[in-house]
């Protein structure tokens, strides 16, 4: 059952091209795993195809934009207009981009580097921190918010401890937890200093010189304006 929804998307996508780009970690994970399972299991593919309006041929490649950028580094570099060198970016992967490793095969699940490669590519300074692949608390934010607050707090503190000015992530849920929970984190841990969290596309857009009104920065709960101004990026 869990395969039908991703397959319907892949079936539609096969008209558009051979590659599907999924900018959200959870979407990427779901599509890629469904694709992986079906490439291994023709029988299940046939059964599911019976329930779809149009059948999926199993030939799509699912890509995350970070993979696309990595493979087209020169293109990205040639478009960068702003100097982000001073910006120290903590690269946060979370769980779903990397795991399960044997199905996702995205990067080394314990010591990934693809995010750092991207951050370097757009001219900023990547910051590695030990907890970059640990969980942010995910859906626990719904029914056990304290657990998510604690998990996010640990990550943010760890990134700050290693010198990050800002955090970048590729998952909307991670982004929500790390960004929107900072108020609650501050209440639980008064010494905590807020830190802006970007979706990776925002950071890319800043580097490419996209105008401020199109960056969606007003959506971020912790405002990055101050630090962006400091480094003359707005």
């Amino acid at each position: 059952m869990s395969l039908i929804a991703p397959l319907r998307i892949l079936a539609k996508a096969q008209h558009e091209g051979e590659r599907v780009l999924a900018p959200c970690s959870i979407c990427y994970n779901t599509l890629k795993r469904a694709n992986f399972i079906l490439k291994e299991d023709e029988e299940t593919l046939d059964i599911i195809n019976e329930h779809l309006e149009e059948s999926y041929d199993g030939n799509e490649t699912v890509l995350h934009p970070l993979e696309f950028f990595r493979d087209n580094a020169q293109l990205v570099k040639s478009k960068v207009k702003k100097n982000l060198k001073e910006l120290k970016v903590g690269c946060y992967y979370g769980c779903l981009l990397l795991r399960p490793d044997n199905e996702i095969k995205f990067d080394d699940p314990e010591k990934p580097t693809i995010f750092e490669t991207f951050v370097s590519m757009i001219g900023a300074t990547p910051i590695d921190f030990p907890l970059k692949v640990e969980c942010c608390g995910s859906y626990l934010v719904v029914n056990s918010p304290d657990a998510a607050v604690e998990a996010s707090y640990k990550l943010l503190r760890n990134a700050q401890g290693n010198g990050a000015d800002v955090i970048v992530t590729s998952c909307p849920l991670c982004h929500y937890n790390l960004d929107a929970l900072q108020g609650k984190i501050k209440k639980a841990h008064p010494e905590f200093k807020e830190i802006p969290v970007f979706y990776f596309s925002q950071l890319l857009a800043i580097a490419l010189g996209v105008e401020k009104q199109n960056l969606g920065l007003e959506q971020n709960k912790v405002s990055p304006n101050e630090i962006l101004k400091e480094y003359d990026l707005l």
Binding site: P130, L131, E134, N158, G161, N162
Partner: peptide
């Protein structure tokens, strides 16, 4: 996980 943070070894 075992990681090093500011000179300390942390075990999760």
């Amino acid at each position: 996980k075992v990681y090093q943070d500011n000179g300390r070894i942390v075990v999760l």
